[in-house]
């Protein structure tokens, strides 16, 4: 009995955890850079970080995936950027 009460409370506590990112009106699948970090818009329209903030000589910018050819915001060396300005806009 005690175990089931504890389990229920734990379940409610865990179930009530908020989403780690605020909801946005972004287009699912679009990507962006913000404060040196790349994000992707999830199906639930949350801007979701896709990696840690860029470090060293790398910068968050629009780049082209070498296999698919799709343009995405990502942390890459400056020479791999196809757009000069980081943290600029979104791309779908």
């Amino acid at each position: 009995m005690r175990l089931s009460i504890v389990s229920t409370l734990l379940g409610i506590t865990l179930a009530a955890c908020p989403h780690p990112e605020p909801r946005s009106n972004c287009a699912p699948g679009s990507t962006k850079c913000e404060q040196g970090r790349s994000y992707v818009c999830s199906p639930g329209q949350y801007w979701t970080p896709s990696s840690n903030p860029c470090e060293g000589p790398r910068m968050c910018c629009l780049s082209q995936n070498p296999s698919s050819g799709r343009s995405v915001f990502a942390c890459v060396p400056p020479e791999a950027c196809i757009e000069a300005h980081a943290d600029a806009g979104e791309v779908e």
Partner: peptide
């Protein structure tokens, strides 16, 4: 929708790994 998110995330991380980023 989950599979689409998987694909979208993979587009970004494979780009980064291609350019040598260990994250």
């Amino acid at each position: 929708k989950g599979l689409k998110l998987a694909r979208d995330l993979a587009e970004i991380w494979t780009t980064e790994v291609h350019y040598g980023r260990i994250d």
